Every structure is written in structure tokens, then in C-alpha cells.
Computed example of a mutant assay.
Amino acid sequence: MKNLRQQLHNIPEPSMQEKKTKKTLIEFLQAETDLKIVDCGSWFYAWKKGVNKTAQGAIAFRADMDAVSLDGKTVGHFCGHDGHSTILAMTGKKLTGKTTNRDVYLIFQPGEETGEGGAICSTLIKEKGIAEVYGLHNIPGYAKGAILLRKGTFACASTGLRIHMTGSPTHAAYPENGRNPSETLARLILEVENITREFQRQGKIVRMTVIGVEIGSNSYGMSASEGEVRFTVRAEKEAEFESYLKEIRKMAEGMARKGGFTLEMEEIERFPATENHAKEVEKVRGAAQKLGLQTMELSEPMRWSEDFGYYLRECKGAFFGMGDGEEYPQLHTAEYEFPDEIIEDAIMLFFTLAIEERSVLS
């Protein structure tokens, strides 16, 4: 178990480039399990056939394979996906030789960090008639091994939003002869803050973060003629997210039109809200309690995003957390490495959900 996790840790690969990682996992599953492996190009799944043909739908579990790029250069497993993949692969080993009531699918997904992989792999849900899907994420700041549960939204919807305005150049001594977007972009940032506060006053969980602003050039003789602001925006629920984005877009369009600027807007790395189903959350709780694992309720959704939301659009399921430890290094930092101590309990939780759904989950 630890050897596999370390193998994966030593070959981190960026989103949608997980070739060595995928090869390592497939070779492990071929050597150590009796599951059927289906290679789908950028991703793959392992499949175990159930014995009861009348069982209602299949069950699936998902792990992500990609690593994090901290600064555009340093790539490493600073989010714990090496641990997630190890848990799922070892669940396959645990299932070997066992009887399952219904078909079990283990989905090994690329590109979670960019939100691409979930959209690709979630097509398997309809294709195979999967009725339930489960996934997990390790989370620092909580008791080691604690199972973190939340009905409704577990992780927020989010997207990067690039807003670019182009006016017309002129000599810096005669700014009135050109169109400089700097004032408009500055006011746009303040107006988006106002939109955010209004949504929050209505009790909605939304947030905007300015990621970057670029206006003009380093030529002191020229008035700036184009610029852009980059936001990350997020919200608890998908419907609120759409409404929030619509208001921001509407504001940008109106301000660009009034200032006479050409407007470009682009969404980057969009993630849906990960909205859990209540009954499936209770199934996770039941399995955890059967194993004697501590469970904790989250009062608010995680602000970060997870592309597991694509799966939950297709069928019922639940995404849950597992504590790394209260004082553990934070995700997406150079100090972070997945704690091996929580792997075994995670395997047993997935295994219990897969093999004992009648007794544990009724």
C-alpha cells in the first residue's frame, strides 16, 4: 500500500498528461486483482461483475490521478491524488476474490485540477447504468481519519473569469483623444464587490477573488488602450452560481458599452458545484459507523471546487472528506504530502460500500 503510494508520488504529472501514473496503476491492477481493466485513452476504469442480475444499478468509485503545478513549473502531488489513486487501486485488490451483489466500477480520472477530467469520465455513468457514485478527498485541519460529511453542497462551483477591454491609443499628453479602460476596469472591480455583497446579504454563499489586473504597457508616452481583470468566482449552489455569473457579465457588458470598449470574456477551468444526495451521505455514515470511524458534519461547504460534481449530475451519490490531522500542512503547498496512515480506513470504507450495500446501506 505504502509502496504504491510512493511510486505514484515520485512520478507526478500535470492534468491530462498522466501517462506514467496511468501505466503504473494499470500494471498494479493487472498483477494484483481479478478486475477487468478498460483503457479509455486519457483515463481508465476497472470493473467487477456482480452476481445478482436483478440488482438495481451498479455502484462506482472515483479517484483522481493528476498532480498540482504550484507555480507553473514545480509539479508534485501537493493535493494528495497519489493517495486517492492508491486507495482506489487497493480497493480493487480488496475486492479480488470477493462476491459483490452488483457491478462495481473503479474510475481512475485525469485532469481534476483543471476540471476537465470529470466532464470526460462521468459519461460512464449513463453508459453503464451506474446508480450510485462515491468519491473522497483528504482534508487538512480536521482530526486524522475523521470522515467529513455534508448533505447538499460539499464543494462550491467556481470558474476563472477573464474580462478584457480594448479602447483606442493616444499620446499620454492627450488622453482625451483615446479610450483608456483603466477607470472602467477599476470601477468594475468595485461593482463586482457590490454584487457579491448583495448576494451575501440574501444569505447566498458567493465569493469573488481578484487574481490579476493588467492595463497598458511600460511606454510612458502612451495612454493605455487595453487591459483586463481576472477573477475567480464561486458559489455554493449551481443555480446561484449561474445567477451570480450572469450579473457580473451583465455589469461588464454595460460598462464596456458605455465606455466604448470592445469586450472579451472567457471562462477558465469551470467546476460545477459538488451537490451531495442526502440518502447517499447517510450510506457513507452508516458504513463509517460500522467500521468504528469518527464522523463529523461540515456546517459549510468547502470553498474550493471539485469536478466530482459532474458525476453527481448524472446519478445519486456522495463526496466526502477524510481528515489529515488538525495541524497538517495545507493542500497546494510544497510542505504537503498525503498521510499514509489514513489509507487503510479509506479502503475499508469504499470496500464496505461496495460489498455490503444490503446490510449496511438499507
Rank of each mutant, 00 (worst) to 15 (best):
F44D: 03
C40T: 14
G286W: 14
Q294L: 04
L349P: 02
Q7W: 05
E253G: 05
S362C: 13
F154Q: 08
P272F: 03
A60R: 10
E267G: 04
K151F: 11
H277I: 15
A346W: 01
I248N: 03
T352W: 00
G323H: 03
F241K: 02
D345V: 03
K250H: 10
A63W: 00
F199I: 08
T21V: 06
P329Q: 00
I205L: 13
F241L: 05
E341D: 15
S223C: 11
S359G: 08
G92A: 06
K237E: 11
E183P: 05
Q330V: 09
R179L: 06
R102K: 14
E18M: 11
C121R: 00
A252M: 01
D345K: 10
D345A: 05
F350M: 00
K48G: 11
D307Y: 04
A173C: 15
C79L: 00
I26S: 06
E127R: 09
E242L: 06
M251G: 07
D34K: 14
Q330A: 13
E341Y: 13
P181E: 05
L190G: 03
T21F: 06
E13A: 00
Q6I: 06
H171D: 11
I59V: 13
Q330C: 11
S168G: 07
L124K: 09
P272V: 04
E282D: 15
M251C: 15
